[in-house]
Write a protein that binds this DNA or RNA. Structure first.
Lengths: 158, 158
DNA sequence: CTCGTGCTTGGAAGTTTCTTTCATTTTGAT
DNA sequence: ATCAAAATGAAAGAAACTTCCAAGCACGAG
């Protein structure tokens, strides 16, 4: 009985994932050489990794500063009440804010931690005044301006 | 006088960026149709976006849970001393930790905010005990376990 | 207004690459 | 040891990329 045919990843699979995580545009022929397989085999393996959901997507990483999003801000949010409805409402509202790149419900001093990109500090002030404090159920917001991006979106270690 | 030949991005350029941000594997022919241009023009524009640094890279997004990295943890760090050497040393050490996906120097209650992926809570405890508290110059660490990933790595809004 | 310069465009040729097919090998269970 | 199922690699066929070139457009000088 084979369930959903979720085979284990062998060494070749992992090597393919690692290579594509570094360069999603790798030509299949080159990738095949890197993992010591024929083009056909490599192509099949890669397609399986897509089909079975190991690779969620392949996306271009755009340099934020070049499109006018040079400022990064982390924000901690505390809600008024800790009810499921309160959380759901907040998450829905945040989901609609395109400036919010990450949003995580956390355990600790905050309820949510947000990662936000805007043009500059002025842009953040606008967002803060017009949208963040207007989010539903927000009791407190703590802002962490990013002074230096040491690591951003590093590849997954596996 | 042409500086570094940094033309402005026109509508077609932005459309290309947006499309590739969603799907970095788009065939040039398909992309061309989406932006209403010939394959040749689209190819040139895309190559320029790469060459001039608008697209930093194209990377496969691997589903963390499928490679044994189902747990996400945000960590706030306060250093002992606020000297350039102290910061540099900390950043170097963090740079070598593959589990740390993001690391940002921030202004606020913490010096650094880290985004960390591990297998599970046990994995984090190991990392915490063996590496995080051993990082150079660390005075205090505050841990935020992520209970729910509402948004992760959303595309840049531009 | 007209001309000329320089940049951008799109069709098509030539080349590379992908994708499928098929015979063979390997794997894994009995 | 034997068989069935799955995976592999070479090659053919299909599709895509990349370059070349003539034509179009914008813009400034005269």
């Amino acid at each position: 009985m084979k369930e959903t045919s979720k085979h284990e990843l062998d060494r070749m699979d992992r090597n393919i994932l690692r290579a594509l995580q570094k360069d999603g545009r790798l030509a299949n022929a080159d990738l095949a050489k890197m993992v010591n397989a024929s083009a056909a085999t490599c192509h099949r393996r890669t397609q399986r990794l897509f089909d079975e959901g190991y690779i969620a997507s392949v996306r271009a990483q755009i340099a934020p500063a070049t499109v006018g999003l040079g400022a990064l801000v982390m924000v901690g949010v505390v809600l008024d009440r800790s009810t499921p409805e309160s959380f759901a409402e907040f998450e829905k509202a945040v989901g609609a804010m395109k400036e919010v790149l990450d949003c995580n419900l956390v355990a600790g001093d905050f309820d949510y931690l947000l990662k936000i990109r805007v043009r500059d500090m002025a842009g953040f002030n606008l967002l803060h005044g017009k949208q963040l404090i207007a989010l539903p159920g927000v009791r407190q917001i703590r802002t962490f301006f990013v002074l230096k991006e040491v690591k951003d979106n590093a590849p997954l270690p596996f």
